[in-house]
Design a protein around this nucleic acid. Structure first.
Length: 575
DNA sequence: GCCGTTTTCGGCCCGACTGTTTTCAGTCG
């Protein structure tokens, strides 16, 4: 069983949970949490780094002790420190930490004073009225606990970023109409363009007399009001999405926006930087002793600690602070840089719209070229094209291009990569195309070596332009396939082909960390919509968001190139 | 347990809201 970074991070988080319940030194606990976060965000697998005898203490948040624990986990699958803690505290007690308003102190009380060891026992104790008798607990808390357990709280619900967008639009629109509100902006992971959003954070500029808080908790879509203060309130929408609103004065807007955009790891690092310069950074501003030295804009906050402005998508404490200090931040790609789309379907295979409708929609969004890439024969469920139908489409596209100058269609295919790595169409047919997009829709469960070899073999094919959705995960629906992406990226480099960042919000498939590796290796990324309808060209914005999180610049992306240059780059992949 | 432009010890981000208090602890972000 290979041990992945996620497994190691989970173990560190588990240790941190137990230490919290034990009431250990909070900074020691934070060290484990930092390490877990650091390990999760790494671009490469610790098991590989360990195999190459790399010095793990060079990683942020990993010192001598934790490096030793990582080696122990890689070797044995677990670590002695965790086993000792598990002997002291039953594993199920940990689950109670996931209940809202139950933190380590209260869980410890429940466990030690009432001997509650499971969620089931917790619910019973709440029903029996035993919890309110504990010091620090009361009737209200007891009811909250009961409702939370009964509602199966604790299971984390995150929303895909595209699902959150409509809520953001209508809420911001609503809030901007409230008297005294000068500005309303979404912060948090939404602003950082994360794949999924847990809570939605909104920062509002308003005067003290503005009724914005009252209007917020009165919003028509509110399911529940969690808290209602003068400067801060939380609601849960009927969909289950939690929204936190923070109201600030104009002079604090930048500091508040910066603070509520996060990430937590980034903020901790930033405040640490401030502290070393004798500055206190909070959501009201940057302070030298009592004097405010910055805060009206985010730029001023970063500037106060000697940094250039850091775009939200980079704020993960993955090197952006050092880069901002050295003036070496990337000039991130923007949506308007995309000149075309290299992966789209029509109703000829499993798309919803006609070729003509898709062309019109692409043009409306300012695209100068569009590759039509239907599924191939083997994907029967998607109406895949065999040679005959593909040749018909090729003709149709040639005819279109002869009579239209405003947008150029590229002849392509999304060809099935078969189980053994062969492609689903003959060389004779493939050779007539402008590009070949290859992808997997079957045998997701192959073991690492077989899956990797399968994909590498496909990429070695004489006609192979772009590997589409390389990881094949569907967020919260299907896990990624087991594939050695470092080898895949290396193959793309050797072979001179390209890797897709699929913009479908269910996929967002290339991970941001692999974008960074591709960029470092000089492998160009194709940010494609994989559109199956005219609406789905709008998904490109999420692909661009993911690319920005992966530090990609305009020049790192193949479909920012003008048509002539693009054709040249594609021809290199076609025999 | 980590870390270093106050460094190898002594710090470690910081404030709002709630409930149970009667001045604050716990939780959350």
């Amino acid at each position: 069983m290979p041990i992945y970074n996620a497994d190691i991070a989970d173990i560190f988080d588990e240790i941190a949970d137990y230490l919290e319940i034990e009431g250990e030194n909070p900074f020691r606990i934070r060290a484990y949490r930092n390490a877990a976060r650091s390990v999760r965000g790494l671009g490469s697998e610790l098991k590989d780094m360990a195999a190459h005898k790399e010095d793990l203490t060079r990683l942020p948040g990993i010192g001598k002790e934790l490096a030793a624990k990582i080696f122990e986990i890689l070797k044995t699958g677990s670590v002695g420190a965790l086993k000792k803690l598990q002997d002291k505290i039953p594993e199920e007690v940990r689950q109670m930490l996931k209940i809202p308003n139950l933190g380590p102190k209260r869980v410890r009380n429940l466990y030690q004073d009432l001997d509650i060891q499971s969620l089931e026992q917790l619910l019973q104790a709440a029903k029996d009225g035993r919890i309110r008798s504990l010091p620090g607990f009361g009737q209200k808390t007891e009811i909250q606990i009961r409702e939370a357990v009964e509602a199966h709280a604790g299971k984390e619900t995150r929303f895909k970023i595209a699902a959150v967008k409509p809520y953001v639009d209508s809420l911001l629109n609503y809030l901007k109409q409230v008297a005294g509100v000068q500005e309303a902006v979404a912060a948090g992971s939404f602003r950082r363009a994360k794949e999924t959003v847990g809570d939605l954070d909104i920062v509002v500029i308003a005067g003290k007399k503005s009724p914005v808080m009252e209007r917020f908790v009165d919003y028509e879509d509110v399911g529940e009001v969690l808290s209602h203060g003068t400067t801060r309130s939380s609601i849960v929408l009927r969909s289950g999405l939690q929204v936190d609103l923070r109201m600030v004065e104009p002079e604090s807007f930048g500091a508040a926006l910066q603070y509520f955009t996060g990430s937590q790891a980034h903020n901790v690092a930033l405040r640490g930087l401030g502290r070393r310069r004798g500055l206190k950074i909070n959501e009201y501003g940057v302070f030298k002793f009592e004097e405010r030295v910055a805060g009206h804009s985010e730029e001023s906050v970063y500037q106060s600690v000697g940094l250039t402005y850091i775009p939200p998508e980079l704020r993960e404490n993955r090197g952006e602070i050092e880069a901002a200090r050295d003036h070496s931040l990337p000039m991130l790609i923007e949506l308007k840089d995309l000149k075309g789309d290299l992966h789209a379907h029509t109703n000829c295979s499993d798309g919803r719209n006609t070729l003509e409708e898709m062309i019109q929609a692409a043009q409306k969004r300012g695209l100068q070229y569009l590759a039509i890439t239907e599924h191939s024969d083997r994907l029967k469920v998607a109406g895949g094209l065999g040679a005959d139908r593909l040749l018909d489409q090729i003709e149709k596209i040639d005819r279109f291009n002869e009579t239209h100058a405003e947008i150029t269609l590229l002849k392509g295919i999304e060809v099935e990569i078969l189980k053994d790595g062969r492609l689903d169409l003959s060389d004779d047919v493939l050779s007539r195309l402008d590009l070949v997009v290859g992808s997997i829709h079957s045998y997701f469960g192959l073991p690492l070596h077989q899956q990797t070899d399968r994909i590498l073999r496909a990429m070695d094919h004489r006609f192979f332009s772009i590997l589409a959705h390389p990881i094949n995960r569907l967020i919260d629906e299907r896990p990624p396939i087991e594939v050695d992406m470092l080898k895949v990226i290396q193959k793309a480099k050797d072979r001179g082909c390209y890797i897709e960042l699929n913009s479908n919000p269910r996929r967002l498939d290339l991970y941001d960390t692999y974008c960074q590796i591709a960029k470092a290796e000089g492998v160009l990324v194709a940010i494609d919509s994989d559109a199956h309808s005219t609406d789905s060209f709008d998904h490109l914005r999420y692909g661009v968001g993911q690319a920005r999180r992966g530090w990609l610049e305009k020049d790192d992306v193949i479909n920012t190139r003008p048509l002539k240059e693009l054709r040249k780059l594609l021809r290199q992949t076609m025999g």
